[in-house]
Amino acid sequence: MGGLSIWHWLIVLVVVIAVFGTKKLRNVGSDLGAAVKGFKDGMKDGSTDAPAQQVTNAGKAADPNTVDVDAKQRH
């Protein structure tokens, strides 16, 4: 029960090509490449420090169910 040889992998490749076809495999490859590129771009964009969002009171006063509270830190 050793590892798989190159012949085993070639047989698996032939079966996969026979089942899915070359066009489908080409589409899967390009979709996978685009997904990896999008993930890398997302990770690069996420690593930069985004400026803190400023919270305003605009629109809060119109809602009667809104409770405005100032939080205080304990010392």
Rank of each mutant, 00 (worst) to 15 (best):
L4M: 11
D41M: 07
V19G: 00
V55N: 07
V28M: 08
V15K: 10
K44T: 15
I6D: 15
T48N: 13
D70W: 03
G29H: 02
T22M: 10
K23M: 12
K60Q: 10
M43V: 15
D68N: 14
L4V: 08
V15W: 11
A61F: 12
A18V: 01
A50V: 10
I11H: 08
S47P: 01
G2C: 01
T66W: 03
M43N: 14
A35H: 01
W7Q: 15
K23L: 14
H75L: 14
G42P: 06
G33Q: 10
D70N: 13
W7G: 12
F39D: 09
L25Y: 01
V36C: 03
K44W: 03
D31A: 03
L10F: 08
T48P: 02
L4E: 01
I17C: 07
A35L: 04
V14Q: 09
D68S: 13
N57K: 05
K72S: 12
H8C: 02
A71S: 13
H75Y: 13
V12T: 07
V28N: 01
S47Q: 14
G29M: 02
A52H: 07
G29E: 00
S47F: 11
S47V: 07
A50E: 09
G33V: 09
K24S: 14
A34P: 05
G38M: 04
A62M: 04
K40H: 04
D45M: 14
P64M: 11
R26G: 01
D45S: 15
I6C: 05
D63M: 11
V36K: 08
V12W: 07
A62F: 03
S5A: 14
M1I: 09
L25C: 02
K44F: 06
D70Y: 07
D45I: 09
V15N: 04
G46L: 12
A61T: 11
K60F: 14
D31L: 03
N57S: 09
Q73E: 10
K44N: 08
V16L: 13
V28C: 03
V28D: 01
G46H: 03
L32K: 09
D63A: 12
M1Q: 10
A61S: 12
I6H: 08
N27A: 11
A34H: 02
A58K: 09
